[in-house]
Amino acid sequence: MTEVTLQEPWATAERQRVAVQFGMWLFLATETLFFGGLFLTYAVARFSHPAGFVAAAREAEAMFGTINTVVLLTSSLTMAIAERAVREALVPLARAMFAATLMLGVAFLVVKGFEYRSDIVKHLVPGPEFTLSQTGASQFWAFYWTATGVHACHMLIGLGVVTRMLLIPAADLPGRSTTAEGSALYWHLVDLIWVILYALIYLVGR
């Protein structure tokens, strides 16, 4: 085990680790409330117009959603291994796993892009060309675009965070285990949000 690089104002590695975990989890708590507010719009819309809402959800492409769920769960696996490898100073494994995470993240966005194209072709963007007429349908699709869009933004930030881990020189990496842990926490949260979105968007009305 290598000594952890200490940041101001921490005196011990243990304390610094608790601080990063605590700070990061507080941030994740804000994310919980952020997405909590978003999911509230889903709950209210579905409660107000159950039939139209569920009928519209049937238009969502479950295949894309399921593939992306597998991709993201796998990326969480590689991230978990990478983070543990950094702590055990297994540098080549850690870097390989960070790279894999990055690739899976990009793959998620690519699949998402194909899904968006298919949705647009099918005129599922609320607006003048919107094809569904039942009340509540445009509510579902407004949620769909907002939620997946916001989630994709989180993915982009996550890709930046993983890239940063890859930019740390190999020799310094074992000392940065708290940084790796913070990055991993963020990545897992983005995965966790997707798991809920998957149930809310793709499994409704099948």
Partner: peptide, 17 residues
């Protein structure tokens, strides 16, 4: 989302509140 992209989240005309 509603103002820039026209997603009718709160728009009462399409069932929003």
């Amino acid at each position: 989302a509603e103002r820039a992209f026209g997603l009718p989240i709160f728009d009462p005309r399409s069932g929003g509140d």
